[in-house]
Design a protein around this nucleic acid. Sequence first.
DNA 1: CCGATCGACTAATGCGGTTTAGTGGTGGCG
DNA 2: CGCCACCACTAAACCGCATTAGTCGATCGG
Lengths: 371, 371
Amino acid sequence: MARRPTIKDIARRAGVSESAVSFALNDRPGVSRDTRARIRRVAEELGWQANSAARALSGERSGAVGLVLARPAHTLGVESFFLQLVSGIQEVLSAARTALLFQVVEDVDAECAVYRRWWAERRVDGVLVVDPRTGDPRPALLAELGLPAVTIGEPGPPAGPSAVPGPSAVPGASVPGPSTGAGASPVSSVRADDAGAMAQVLEHLHGLGHRRIVHIAGLPGLAHTVRRMESLRAEAERRGLGPDHVRSVVTDYSDAEGAAATRRVLAEPRPPTALVYDNDVMAVAGSAVAAELGIPVPHRLSIVAWDDSALCRVTHPRLTALVRDTAGFGRLAAEELLSVLAGGPAGVRESERPRLEPRESTAPAPAHTDS
Amino acid sequence: MARRPTIKDIARRAGVSESAVSFALNDRPGVSRDTRARIRRVAEELGWQANSAARALSGERSGAVGLVLARPAHTLGVESFFLQLVSGIQEVLSAARTALLFQVVEDVDAECAVYRRWWAERRVDGVLVVDPRTGDPRPALLAELGLPAVTIGEPGPPAGPSAVPGPSAVPGASVPGPSTGAGASPVSSVRADDAGAMAQVLEHLHGLGHRRIVHIAGLPGLAHTVRRMESLRAEAERRGLGPDHVRSVVTDYSDAEGAAATRRVLAEPRPPTALVYDNDVMAVAGSAVAAELGIPVPHRLSIVAWDDSALCRVTHPRLTALVRDTAGFGRLAAEELLSVLAGGPAGVRESERPRLEPRESTAPAPAHTDS
DNA sequence: CCGATCGACTAATGCGGTTTAGTGGTGGCG
DNA sequence: CGCCACCACTAAACCGCATTAGTCGATCGG
């Protein structure tokens, strides 16, 4: 069990003062080229790494960022989205030698408590916020704490009396000066093009002749759910389809509610000919329901899954899915956070538009069901 | 953006020295009952929380533990196991005010590099090691670094010339003295009863009349895969079934290899009447293959999934699965790690035996296929 | 030729805790 | 009465690094 070398050890070995070592290792002026090189070499030999605690204590930087996942334990589960996101985040963070603190909690209140604690303990320099929702208390809290943050997914309108609907984040408008650091509103965000994706899905289905379409949406509290529902409605209207033809029903994302919703809408007198599911689990559950009811997919019912995964490929027929570069989304978020931490302006970044991958679960609508 | 209070603020407000505050807040002797109470009250009022960096610097404790997941990015995905495990871990850790550093890397070498870095930077007090494998270099590395660790799943035999087969971790044998701290061999483990679980599965299938059984196993490098394969063989032999009747084939856990293996064994001249899959994803993929080949489940083929999840409930028929309390397993591991960190002896803890949940995918074997 | 300037480096201070070594007052006991 | 043990508490050192304020010798402009 080796002792970890400190700056003092390097200083002694290199015959210089501790400050010289600090300067040399941090690319600060004050040491000559060859002294710097010598110090670097000694540090290398000794396998020195800065003690993160000491660095945090003096430098006011902990070298870590946090991510809290607020989900009731039983909802955690079959979902590829999250781990892939984290994997993308890590790629960027570990290149910047930044650690990720990860926590799973039950709900948003607990999440806020975690933020407060992390802040008070100075555990993290910033946080990544997932699952932004309508009336979300988190951006306000983080702004109050002055904890730099990036929301993954565009936040909905803020909570409280000042909740003004309308375009909530205009890229250029609230950008602070270049060196504003962690002062004003450190919350920026990365967003997925939900509207564009939904337009794509609708175009695909409409082009196949579908006129009765139901969107089995996720949790209505989540901002992206709302955005998807809104853009579905807008796109449908653009094509002259009203809420009697195209609509959304909300669920909690679970296989159970996905199945139940499917059963319900398929039992209607004029059932839809296409279903769009907000995640892969519900899509698989829904296609199982269709099989059970003896409704052949895709001949009488087309199915689209939002987010691709192994799941969509193990069912029969394989599911047409909206493929996103989830890891890329995570990378984008991490980059934005690092940039904010480095004193850059807060802003909004948009990820690539998802791509629709047609498989066997979508086909032309049955002819006689138009109306 | 409030300033965080420090011990000095408390000391001033309470009219005592900083050390008195430290004593009071850490339950150390040296302050009277009511002074302690007063200090506590002031700290509460101010919302004080110890600066983790400062505490780490002086106390030699970072208050964080680490977990590295070594998986190639594309393998991350549909698997409920991991998030549930983490959720259980968190429950215990956050009660102990300990943070979890989480990292995803490509392979075990990168994982070792992370351990070295965390150790050198003193980022973590200990680590949780997942996916122990045969010839695993990690326990040795961690022992060398003196980084306390708990392997989740019993480790296989160690790598290197000293690799002695046989019972690798005898609970009582290598227990150090009560206050040995992080000296000798800080690596302990929690284990799942893979053998008992496999025995249960085999009993279920054998009881249903199945004699030709194939175990679609996971990665052969993982220790628990080996244990499952061994106990399958042992249990089969106990019932007079040789490798021509009962055997394992290995995969990489992916849906693709699970499907391919299924296709292969079902195409044999005397195909198995029951398949046991090492995870839920492969089980679902396998049952899709059976459907595609027109082999009715469970009438001509029974299927068992190791690990239950929503997946097993959305297929038709729903899959008989081995249900484990994964979160509980995580809790157990976290408790063991905290106990080791507190100076307790390293040991092996065993989790509850998994429970077989019979569903519609297992049924009596077709009569004419015995032999 | 001398003071000003600059580069290379050292000494000292602080970050916010923990911990060890005092310090002063009190009470018990011979 | 005097010595010592004990208690409640304070002062100071320390953890490992970053940073600021010097120090010292060489160079340079006038």
